[in-house]
Design a protein around this nucleic acid. Structure first.
Length: 477
DNA sequence: GAGTTTGAAACT
DNA sequence: CAGTTTCAAACTC
């Protein structure tokens, strides 16, 4: 099953109602997700680079993507509108172009975990991007580098997901200069790092592997050896995952959860860390004093809690004894050092998304576990919306990311630890295809949304970035 | 870059 | 559940 840790949901979304009235939500989405992948798998080997496959049609003669459209339109809650005009256009025109093909390639690389609980990797299991790295994935950049983001989509791209980092700011002339663009892309590409592992013995099929644990396929930048965590070993990956989850259904669950300020966490402790987040299982540090990244709590930028079994806890984000932080130099320094890398924390933070501040780049969607990164990706737009691109252009241009933070934080507030999203009823949201967006090629849109003027509208509308728990209803008591 | 340390994951 | 081993990331030099 897939999980959504954070999602941009239009203010008109009746998620909670849907959840409660659709017991089969999990399987539903799984099926939805599975569908196009299966189709894609059957019709093509995306990695083989056969572009024709991506345009194969179903028995009904309807393009796969159109079937997705139909499924979504009919199955999704309330008046979910799937505006897929852009894609349809491509399909209808038979544009089995690279862009289209990429969609399938992307999907092809995604892990597919069709069962719950614990299935489905988390969009919050995002790459752990070192500080200063670009939010854009390599694949994204590569696509963009090939000039696949036409100017007429800049507005959408910029507003919703794919805006170039602030470091690329510049005047219009510079921005439009191909050479400048190329340099920028190259610069970013160098700094881009998706989650990558260096596994040698685990075949990237154990939780030791960050990629696997984060629900991502290993990709080229990984330095792993004998890697089985690749689409071509999909069955192995799935089976391994099942085994792991059979042992621990929450093995792939987010490890860090954010709780609302002032609300007691599961241990009855008032959260005091800035992020009000806690590691679900807690750490077991003995020697690091929870002051180094060996400590999962510290790494996630959260304080230790009573569920931690650490010894000599000095976690600068909050000690398990309840102290907020140490004022002594070492801890303060460690805190500042770490805080500089993770300025804030999302509602749900899992391994692989340990830097959930707004400097956190979007994940490489092509590696996300969802079978479908097209339309459905918009359902789980954490990767898009909780990314720094959530900020406006102006905000991004500023070195002060705090300007973005309130937008995110405010939208995260009020999400109980149990993760039940509070989404107004009788609302809907619209998916608008953005065929030229480099990643999932979808942007979230408001109803009657005009993509050509998305910039303004996106800014004006307060999207609700809700953090949806990984396992809202499947976690054992 | 190699070696060491560390703690989570896996195993018994 | 506890102890041990394996593993890879974090860290140090």
């Amino acid at each position: 099953m897939l999980t959504m840790n954070s999602s941009i949901i239009h203010e008109n979304t009746d998620w909670q109602d849907w959840r409660t009235t659709n017991s089969g939500t999990t399987s539903f989405i799984s099926n939805i997700l599975q569908f196009p992948l299966d189709k894609a798998n059957n019709s093509e080997n995306a990695e083989s680079g056969d572009p024709s496959g991506s345009c194969k049609q179903s028995k009904s003669g309807e393009p796969v993507m159109d079937q997705m459209h139909g499924i979504l339109s009919t199955c999704l809650p309330d008046e979910l509108v799937v505006n897929d005009s852009g894609l349809k256009k491509d399909d209808k025109e038979g544009n089995c172009n690279q862009s289209n093909h990429q969609q399938f390639s992307i999907r092809r690389r995604c892990l597919v975990f069709e069962k719950s609980p614990g299935f489905g990797l988390h969009l919050n299991s995002l790459p752990n991007i070192p500080k200063g790295q670009s939010p854009l994935s390599k694949s994204t950049l590569s696509s963009m580098n090939r000039g696949e983001v036409p100017d007429d989509n800049k507005g959408v791209v910029t507003e919703n997901s794919y805006e170039m980092p602030a470091t690329f700011g510049g005047n219009e002339a510079d921005h439009n200069s191909p050479e400048k663009k190329r340099q920028k892309f190259e610069l970013v590409e160098e700094s881009v790092a998706c989650k990558r592992c260096n596994c040698k013995r685990s075949k990237c099929l154990k939780l030791y592997c960050d990629c696997f644990a984060a629900g991502l396929y290993c990709i080229e930048p990984c330095s792993c050896q004998d890697c089985f965590n690749k689409p071509i070993h999909e069955n192995v990956v799935l089976e391994t995952r099942r085994q792991i989850e059979s042992r621990n259904p929450l093995a792939f669950a987010p490890k860090v959860i954010r709780t609302t300020n002032g609300v007691s966490d599961s241990m009855g402790e008032i959260n005091k860390t800035p992020a009000s987040a806690r590691h679900k299982r807690g750490c077991n540090c003995k020697r690091s004093s929870c002051l180094k990244k060996y400590c999962e709590c510290f790494q996630a930028g959260v304080g230790c809690s009573l569920s931690c079994r650490c010894e000599g806890c000095k976690n600068s984000f909050g000690r398990k004894d309840g102290c907020e932080s140490e004022s002594d130099g070492d801890n303060l320094e460690a805190c500042e050092k770490n805080a500089s890398e993770k300025s804030s924390h999302d509602t749900v933070i899992s391994k692989g998304q340990e830097h959930p501040n707004l400097s956190v780049p979007s994940p490489d969607i092509s590696r996300l576990p969802f079978a479908y990164t097209g339309k459905l990706a918009a359902f789980f737009p954490h990767s898009i919306k909780s990314s720094p691109q959530l900020c406006s252009t102006q905000e991004q241009g500023s070195s002060d990311t705090s300007s973005c933070k309130p937008k995110l934080e405010s939208n995260l507030d009020g999400i109980p630890e149990n993760g039940t999203p509070e989404i107004p009823k009788h609302k809907c949201f619209t998916l608008v295809s953005n065929p030229t967006s480099p990643n999932c090629k979808r942007v979230f849109s408001t109803p009657n949304h005009d993509s050509t003027s998305s910039s303004t509208k996106w800014r004006s509308r307060k999207l609700i970035l809700r953090s949806v728990p990984s396992f809202p209803s499947f976690s054992p008591p």
